[in-house]
Simulated assay, not measured.
Amino acid sequence: MEKGAAVRCQRIGCDAMFTDADNLDGSCRYHDSGPIFHDGMKEWSCCKQKSHDFSLFLAIPGCKTGKHTLEKPVTKAVSASSRKPTPSPVQNKPTDVNCSRCRQGFFCSDHNAQPKPSNPVVLPTSVENDQVKNTPPPVKKIVGLDEPQICRNKGCGKTFKEKDNHETACEYHPGPAIFHDRIRGWKCCDVHVKEFDEFMDIPPCTKGWHNADAV
């Protein structure tokens, strides 16, 4: 460079003007690896700092220090999908009715309980139409008024009796639940936290009937 002329540093996250005279060790603060863009989230792969807003993302201070340079670093955006580890197979254990996660249908790492998968809808062919018409409807389970049941509404999980059930008996989240980039929350009340235990403690936002067969 021309002696005494200020030039712009090429390190990612720095963008400062410098000269040979003021280019001391530690004068440059930068990011030494590329960004990750996934579902609207921007993240620095080197320090895991992130933001949804691109301007705020670019303003995140660099995590490394050194000298300014005119050499352009070779980096590239990293796909978040490439970072996902291959899940290892686990042995399913029975759900625990005393566990609040199992009762409410969430994945439980303590018991390896998975939520019940929804069955895909398959339309009958013309050959099966007659069989479908002649198939009797499934018999609904008859529940006694005093028979204890567990409410499956998200955020409830309480035991109730049908005789005590009414339109404000249950406090729950109509949902859906949101799990994304280590953030957990409820779309219905727009509350989000980082830890699962904090997520389970979010107060329900809706009242209604207890439901032992909630989807």
Rank of each mutant, 00 (worst) to 15 (best):
A214F: 07
N98H: 12
S82I: 03
T125C: 10
K141W: 03
P204A: 13
D130F: 10
D164V: 07
V132Q: 08
P117Q: 15
P204M: 09
N153I: 09
K42T: 00
K3A: 12
G13W: 11
S45Y: 02
H166R: 14
R101W: 08
G62A: 10
A113H: 05
W186A: 09
H173A: 08
S55G: 07
Q114D: 04
V97N: 04
T95D: 00
P124Y: 12
F160Y: 15
D25Q: 15
C47I: 00
N23C: 06
D20Q: 06
D15Q: 14
K161R: 06
K161T: 01
V193Y: 02
V139W: 09
R83S: 04
V191P: 00
P61A: 15
H31Q: 11
D213W: 15
K72H: 13
T86R: 15
P124E: 01
H166Y: 11
M41A: 04
C9I: 07
A212K: 07
K154T: 02
G4E: 12
K67F: 06
L145Q: 05
N129A: 06
T168E: 10
R103A: 11
R152L: 03
A6D: 04
S33H: 11
H38R: 03
M1Y: 13
K116E: 12
V74S: 15
P73M: 10
F179S: 04
K158V: 10
I142R: 04
E198D: 08
V90H: 12
K140M: 14
K72T: 05
N129Y: 11
G175T: 03
D22V: 12
K163Q: 09
K116C: 11
D39W: 04
L70M: 03
K84G: 04
D22I: 11
P204L: 08
K93S: 06
S109L: 15
C9G: 05
F106G: 00
A21M: 12
E43W: 04
D213A: 05
V143W: 01
N165K: 10
K163P: 00
Q10N: 13
E171Q: 02
G13L: 08
C47R: 03
I36H: 00
A80T: 00
F199P: 03
G40Q: 07
N23D: 05
R83P: 00
P117E: 12
C9M: 10
A59Y: 06
H52Q: 02
Q104M: 08
L56P: 00
M17G: 10
P61Q: 10
Q91G: 04
Q49V: 01
P87N: 15
S27I: 15
V191L: 08
F160A: 11
F54K: 07
G40V: 07
A177Q: 09
P120A: 14
D110V: 11
H52T: 03
R182F: 11
K154R: 12
V127R: 09
C63S: 11
D164N: 13
S45C: 04
R83W: 14
C151A: 12
E162V: 05
K72R: 10
S45T: 01
L24T: 10
D146V: 02
T19E: 11
G175E: 06
